[in-house]
Design a protein around this nucleic acid. Sequence first.
RNA 1: GCUGGAAUCGUGUAGUGGCAAUCACAGGAGACUGUAAAUCUCCCGCCUUUCGGCUUCGUAGGUUCGAGUCCUACUUCCAGCA
Length: 401
Amino acid sequence: MTKKPFYFEVSSKLPGALARTGVIHTPHGDIETPAFIVVGTKADVKAMVPEMVHDVGAQAVLANAYHLYLQPGHDLIARAGGLSKFMHWNGPTFTDSGGFQVLSLGSGFKKVLAMTTDVDAELAIARKGDRHAWVTDDGVKFKSHLDGSFHFFTPEFSMQIQHGIGSDVAMAFDELTSLADSRAYQEKALARTHAWADRSLAEMQRLNAATPDYYQALFGVLQGANYEDLRKETATWMAERDFDGFGIGGALEKDEMGTIIRWCNEILPENKPRHLLGIAEPDDIFAAIEQGIDTFDCVSPTRVARNGSAYTPSGRVNIRGKQYIDAFTPVFEGCDCYTCQHYTLAYINHLARAKETLSGTLLSIHNERFIIKLVDDIRESIKDGTFYEFRDRFLTAYYRR
RNA sequence: GCUGGAAUCGUGUAGUGGCAAUCACAGGAGACUGUAAAUCUCCCGCCUUUCGGCUUCGUAGGUUCGAGUCCUACUUCCAGCA
């Protein structure tokens, strides 16, 4: 019996919890889990070259089907030899389906994605006609944020794009809802996400059958907002299908995140990897890993870096602050990243004030290293049974201020 | 020296007789979770927690019910001419 080029092996478990360590095997290499996957939306990790991405310990990169379809086009990436070759990343790659853009360009357009349900005020100011995405049962109509042209994404088309891009792991095309949406809408959207998941799976199987030397894994994506019955329903539904792994999505209410993930992961099969989409804050990472999440991705480390913030053991700090003008110390003592080994806060503060792009690069290196090392340390703490001690010590220091 | 122009928030500006302070930058604080994001929000003359109060358009006069705006002188700067 031959194994698929993509498979997952659990290597250890935390007694009494869902947390586990393991290895995801992909055609482009292995990923030791839990792992933080860095985001490279447009086939680049913003402000970093792949050598830096490798040096911070990243094991995989996640790009986006919507962005790469618009520019430069998945056909071109296919002609270039696939995403990893195109962007010179010698490692595994994931792609998101464009499902996130259903919300970020649709009902969530021009709004901050709420991590709480207290969003009535935001809904009240939502302006009709000011969106770039419209959902129908068949798919999503997008108005390009680049040139205003219209494009229609179906689950099949998203698979074709992702297969063309050539990532190791594709995501099923899903509809991300807002916590502000009604219960009735959540049910409707979840039914649609299920229909789309079936269509995504059928299309991916067809595409894989047509390319004997290339197998692209497909993750089914779980929605259901913060409703226990919907989350359990979708977990059961997804578990019955032949996905290679699963993504847990949705704008998750922060306080309920661990609980929601537990509802899903108690039902999902143990032998397939579970990815948590778009999460990186330390408390969320601990909660998710405790409840059995294997991989994460998030834009936060690079985005906040370009906006002048650095992760530290005592919380996220805005390094543009006046008090760092003459701080001739690293971002924090003891950090093992390239930036902290060679540059001072004062220097990065200067670069940020001078609007030099190097500040974004140096802070991106630092922030990616910080989150990756955190997840690496959590992985080791699961192996040696010190997960809870490590969590309590870390989070107490991180949120002390 | 002559002629013309200019002077408004830290800086550059808007305001051409009717409640001065527009816009930008600089400065201060904050936000950012499957990237419409090297972006966005708020503050930014003084006092006040708020409500609100007070001050101020180079200087000194003048005209006018009322002047940043018109007039006179002065100061400083800019341009041209000598």
